[in-house]
Design a protein around this nucleic acid. Structure first.
Lengths: 245, 245
DNA sequence: TATAGTTGTCTATATCAATAGACATTTTAA
DNA sequence: TTAAAATGTCTATTGATATAGACAACTATA
């Protein structure tokens, strides 16, 4: 079976829109990953059982969204969104925040350690300097491209075992949930920029001179008690932050 | 603020369809419960900022779905959906299964008793005949109309106190959760039909000769251990079951 | 019994959606 | 260089969508 098909007429939803939705979904599922382009308009028209112009309307809509780009003579290329968008809100989460923009998300736990809180960490987590904290080093990929490397600190007492939970779920949100924190909010985020150092270059697969976006973030539980402080280093050419006010 | 509004033009979705969706949603939210009818076409046209004919298209679509019925000179009446649909799947639950079709759900605990398992109950629950089970008699209403009367049996040892939990939450799912069973699945469902007896007639507010749909269901925990066996008697003219394969 | 309020029907017009066909333009590869 | 394959553009036609206005038919109520 080649076909997507199944577009319905006279439902109040235009065929071109139904087709655009199908193609967008197929792209999201990686259906055309091998070629990196959408099938020719004539082929799509045949598959969906509509006129080529109708397919063109659908592709025009997708081009408007920046999902595809038509090149005369070649075909209609799928645009890799080279900048993942991170909305920064009170409900900022890494995975679900960009889950609709990338097909495959990976979050690897590189290192875990228990240590004494530095002055900075203690200040952010509302602890005394020297109190025990758990530090996680994580590396996050989207579609096999490294996106960010993050260092996170958690109060050791409250979140014992978070390393294991994170390794299992590849998600801070789910790790928190497993440890009895079903919900949390982003309290503050500080964004700066810097040049990548040699370690960054290797881990994020960058070239010398590359720029990083650095986000220092503090999350709290619903009572306002700090639960996480993290410093994330993003490859600046692969992400953008959006802050809505 | 009166208005729903917010219909968009030139999105590939016809205005009449957007409006139909809004009105259907508003009906589902009980927005027009006081009058039992949709506002006049002219009022809706004003609210949505469209022509009256466009509203008429939307209402015609809803009438086709059986959600409303227009009466010349009176108005457009909201049709009480006389058959609630029960999807029967592995995740069958009473309340959430029809929660989007009725505005007010009630589940009353009529009686609770601890008794010895009959041969039938023992077989379904994987117990030995004579083992202790808890029996609950429940009556379920949707929008103040009785829908079903059910007798449920639970292993007494594992689910001590389920009667109280059910009375409190009016939900088997939540009662299970309170007793440490966060999730369960429908293992088997047997459906038959019969005439209502005199007790059914009274409890389900039926007229003599009425038909019942009788569902014998067994739920298990995620390990496959039976947790509930129930016999539910549904007023056949108020429900339908759907089984997707 | 009027009358106001409501839905039903009809005509007319403009725009959007979809089909059909022809041909131009560009890229890729034989 | 040529041809095949793909997208781009144009004209024309049909049906669905939406607006506009007028009036008929029906219901409830004063």
């Amino acid at each position: 079976m080649a076909g997507l098909k199944q577009v319905q007429r006279q439902t109040g939803v235009a065929l071109w829109r139904q087709i655009a939705d199908r193609i967008r979904e197929a792209i999201g599922n990686g259906a055309y990953d091998e070629t990196g382009m959408v099938p020719p308009e004539t082929v799509l028209a045949l598959q969906f059982g509509v006129n080529r112009h109708t397919v063109r309307s659908a592709l025009a809509a997708l081009a408007q969204e920046g999902i595809v780009r038509a090149v005369q003579g070649r075909g209609t290329l799928i645009e890799r969104k080279e900048r993942l968008n991170f909305p920064i809100t009170r409900r900022t989460r890494f995975t679900s925040g960009i889950g609709d923009q990338a097909r495959e998300m990976r979050s690897l736990l590189l290192d875990e350690a228990q240590e004494e809180a530095s002055a900075e960490v203690a200040r952010w987590l509302g602890l005394k300097q020297g109190e025990r904290v758990i530090r996680l080093e994580t590396l996050r990929h989207a579609d096999r491209r490294p996106v960010s490397k993050a260092t996170s600190w958690f109060p050791a007492e409250r979140f014992a075992g978070i390393g294991e939970a994170y390794r299992k779920h590849e998600s801070i949100t789910k790790a928190f949930a497993e440890l009895g924190l079903p919900d949390y909010v982003r309290a503050t985020t500080e964004v700066t920029a810097a040049h990548a150092n040699t370690a960054d270059l290797a881990e994020l697969e960058l070239t010398p001179g590359a720029i990083l976006l650095i986000a220092k973030a503090m999350n709290t539980d619903l009572e306002g008690v700090p639960v996480q402080y993290s410093i994330s280093r993003f490859a600046a050419d692969r992400v953008q932050f959006t802050i809505e006010n």
